[in-house]
Design a protein around this nucleic acid. Sequence first.
RNA 1: CGGGGUGUAGCACAGUUGGUAGCGCGCUACGUUCGGGACGUAGAGGUCGGAUGUUCGAGUCAUCUCACCCCGACCA
Length: 490
Amino acid sequence: MAKEVINREENYSQWYNNLVVKADLAENSAVRGCMVIKPYGYAIWEKIQAALDKMFKDTGHVNAYFPLFIPKSFFSKEASHVEGFAKECAVVTHYRLKNSADGTGVIVDPDAKLEEELIVRPTSETIIWNTYKNWIQSYRDLPILCNQWANVVRWEMRTRLFLRTTEFLWQEGHTAHASKQEAIDEAEKMINVYADFAKNYMGIPVIIGKKSESERFAGAVDTYCIEAMMQDGKALQAGTSHFLGQNFAKAFDVKYTSKDGNLEYVWATSWGVSTRLMGALIMAHSDNNGLVLPPKLAPVHVVIVPIYKGDDELKQMCERAEQIKKLLAAKNIVVKIDDRDNVRSGFKFAEHELKGIPVRLAIGPRDYANNTVELARRDTLEKCVVPVAGIDEYISKLLDEIQNNILAKALKFRQQNTIKIDSYDEFKEKIETGGFFLAHWDGTPETEAKIKEETKATIRCIPLDAEVEEGKCMVTGKPSKQRVIFARAY
RNA sequence: CGGGGUGUAGCACAGUUGGUAGCGCGCUACGUUCGGGACGUAGAGGUCGGAUGUUCGAGUCAUCUCACCCCGACCA
């Protein structure tokens, strides 16, 4: 049944949406472009949050919280920031409702108009820098290394579950520094934290790079990003880190007295990842049987399905399952025993595969007698029979292996779909089937725009670790010092 | 905001020239089943997205509107 619905060949988007629905992760809400994250989906988000939060704290950051509403005037202070965000904001204009005259419902009370409109935050730079102004006087107050977990709203014209919802959950780090170099180091440090997380937790290899001028964040001097490849060969920006220079310090007049008594503007960064990461997780690893979760982000590592006839056998199998659960729990492995007696085991198998649970154990009378279990791993769909004795060690190692295998598979896929290219004609032809293209570019926004116009491909990033290689722009033939990554993107 | 498509039971859909609201899955009860999405029998469940109009009569025709999906523009 699932196979009929989840058919990637037919329509990747359809497949993606159906997978989300079938795996019980999320659904569209009654509100335009918003999403309901269902309990199982949210459990995955909590795993992502927990892992990231620890990484932030290990790198010296603390959490704080800033207001949801931002006075409109704050947005007028940084010109390019306005340019980038003003058009896509939800605006609060009134503060009261009243019963309508005809008694059929409520209307906005025209007398309750706000003096100054409030913007629902699309990102928090402005309100945070307005606050930082009061926190910073001396070099002794620096650096400030704050992060907040929050929701933001961007009224995009077109939305897409997980990837571009009107409201989304994210974290945004906002730091303030005494020197330019320290801020640049911070921005680079955080993009590396993201890359590390993507690789080691999500099992998604990413390319670290800088955005070209036209793809840069509104208000940033430099935008660093991580770019991941999805299974259809399209690119997904999975995280960004911005070096903001002194733009926001100047806009909000944030100065500090340096060691030698001079008054100087503060240097800034901001960085964030969102629930879009879950979209990445789904689109990078899923197969026709459903999700494939890397063990480090799976809310449940092992599901045990008892195979039985009658209550006595059910009880017997569940007792054995409990023993195994206890063994595994001692190794921090989360086990769920699926003892529902209203669905058959085959149904349970299919359902847990759809949810991406890394390891499944089945225990039936045969296994009970032999003191074994049937073990199935989600990533390869292989099955084998293993003895109960030592199963904790076995599964502990297996989870590591699955984690590594998922990454290795994604990495191999990316390598197979990444090519160096020098001919624009060849590029135009090959971009149709997806993938990353390493090509020389003359560095001008005009050439970039032309390529986008003609092929729908954009520069995903200018890789940080690229080798210096003299070459000629594939379009204009002008000189270039390194290759950049072109791809079609979500 | 432009082009295309879809809104009918919890889900996925059918519904002919306008004439009593339908199928499958799921749900409830009972029975048989149970090592890869079981089967039988009996049931419950709908102001057909919304509004207005045409008509003796609208799920069906017309106008408007709302929501969702796809392609653009925009964007994380």
